[in-house]
Amino acid sequence: MARYALRRLLIAIPTLLAISFIIFALLDLAPSDPTANLPLTIPPEVREKIRLSLGLGEPFVVRYFKWLEQFMINEPLNVLEQWTGWTIGDSENRLRVLSWATRSPVTDLIVERLPQTLWVVGMSYVIAVLIAVPIGVISAYRQYSLFDQIGTFISMLGFSIPTFFTGLLLIVIFSVWLGWLPSIYDTTHVVRDWDSFVFQVKQMLMPTMVLALANASQISRFMRASMLDNLNQDYVRTARAKGLRERVVVLVHVLRNSLIPVVTVIALGVPTIFGGAIITEQIFRVNGIGQLLIIGIEGADIPLVQTLTFIFAILIVVFNLIADLIYGMLDPRIRYD
């Protein structure tokens, strides 16, 4: 197991390097000029100086490795310093990834916006799992019952209707027609007392529900299929023959075994919901990292976009790794060597 984990970790490093190269090259070799949006009255030599100040004077390879050093070494050190208050080395003169639009370090922008994303996205994923697991279990236990049929249909709806439509639909119903919930997420809102807490719950309700519905429909399908696989196995018959109560058979014996593949599916789904959150944040005006990405793309802020896209890629690789390792840990039948 340890050897497998180590090997898997070592494979992840070249994958990440390849992805970072693809992202950097794609953004860098693309036919677009960062100074194109500046006024035409700027003389060409000043324009050239602006380009140099953005770091575009160096050859491609040098810029790639500098960006990689800034991203992989300098920025993590800075984050560590901010969290702990230590000073590591020459932190004043350390080169940082600067946003072209705001001239501030990209990492600071991301750290500012990360809590909103984590709250909305994280909460929605927790709710999705809490809804999906019981529905999957009941659907499988009462296969082809009315509950199962309705559940199947709703989950089909859940992954067919795109989040940008469910989001708008909820806004039309609950904000426009009924006027119960605010349609715009207010980030400056601080929870002080009971009333402000209620307001916070109200404004989080719609974005989390939209994401939760989309994710719950997928997870409940996996849960149902996995339960069905296990319900007909011999060990279930043995458990019943031993005289265990039905509740214990289903909720302890079958559920625990069926959760193994579902846990890996849940782990694999984490990075994709960060991607899906881009759209949800845009609908409800949550100023999280998804919205930051859109702002960066609209303003052609290449360093910001590079960094965010690469962070999304890191999330995917890391959660793939976690899913693989969890699977090996939970299921003793899986042997990697």
């Binding site: 992202i23 794609l26 793309i297 995917i316 690789v317």
Partner: peptide
Amino acid sequence: LALPILPLLLVI
């Protein structure tokens, strides 16, 4: 499979 598809599509 490890590429972040939606951000990358937007960038392209």
